[in-house]
Nucleic acid binder design. Structure first.
Lengths: 139, 139
DNA sequence: TATACTTGTAGTTTTGAATGTTACAAGTTA
DNA sequence: TAACTTGTAACATTCAAAACTACAAGTATA
């Protein structure tokens, strides 16, 4: 069980725009070729990043640019852009309300899980994209 | 996108054994009725908890007991018992090896993601089941 | 204006994991 | 032997992710 590849793909997209945006028009086909997925997936993801105010997309003419510098974009920003805001774990939906455990499991365990999610989000927020980019320039 | 209900279900199971084990024989049917899922799901989960040395199952006669006290069982123990050990995020599988980003995205971002996973696991480990049980006794 | 290229998005298909269900062999007790 | 339970195989169902096709609409430029 793991999270979808949307955050990795979105991160990939942003890094490509940063590294290649100066020399190329970064279209959905260009990105699809680097990421290795269908251009429509790229366009949908770009739509999510646009709504989160992370990128600007030039409709018609084509091409994409970043709206923030890399040190202002965290993995949490990307996570929120491409994933639903929901509990970290899916809860079984029919616990027995006549059982002390069944009646309260969602509230009690759910509270703890939400605490864990808060910390998880803080950890994601502490990682900015500029901490990744150096490794790509070297290669 | 969220984790499966296996950790919530396994936690539910352990709490029921603790609370009802003295007065009832806690069979897979008994547990299925409290959790609200099929008894076979319960048996599979009990198998995972048994392999993790968290419970003992009496084959033939039926019934289950805890092998540790609640203050010795953390959400991380349960998480490891019921979930695969893998990256937190699924990575796109065909990044372009001729692209600086595509060639290194898995290694670079993967490293950061593993750091986040380590912290996530520490947070889960800090939550022991005895911190949950009081709320159920009250109700 | 016509052409070429691009984005946005609807609609459909494919794939894979989670979950549900049936069935039955094997263990245990009385 | 009868009654009950666990362990597990096999198959069905459900649901979300991802792939793909198609096309309307935006934009630049010849």
């Amino acid at each position: 069980m793991q999270f979808s590849s949307r955050l990795p793909i979105a991160t990939h997209i942003l890094l490509v725009i940063q590294l290649y945006g100066k020399d190329f028009k970064v279209t959905s086909d260009f990105l699809a070729s680097s990421v290795g997925v269908n251009p429509v997936i790229i366009r949908k993801t770009l739509g999510q990043l646009k709504r989160a105010n992370l990128v600007e997309v030039n409709q018609g003419i084509g091409g994409t640019t970043l709206k923030k510098s890399l040190d202002q974009i965290s993995l949490l920003d990307i996570f929120h852009a491409v994933e639903e805001d929901e509990d970290l774990f899916h809860f079984h939906e029919n616990p027995n309300p006549n059982c002390a455990v069944g009646k309260n499991i969602h509230a009690v365990l759910g509270g703890k899980i939400r605490d864990v999610k808060s910390k998880f989000e803080k950890d994601l927020d502490s990682i900015k994209l500029d901490s990744l980019i150096e490794k790509f320039k070297e290669s």
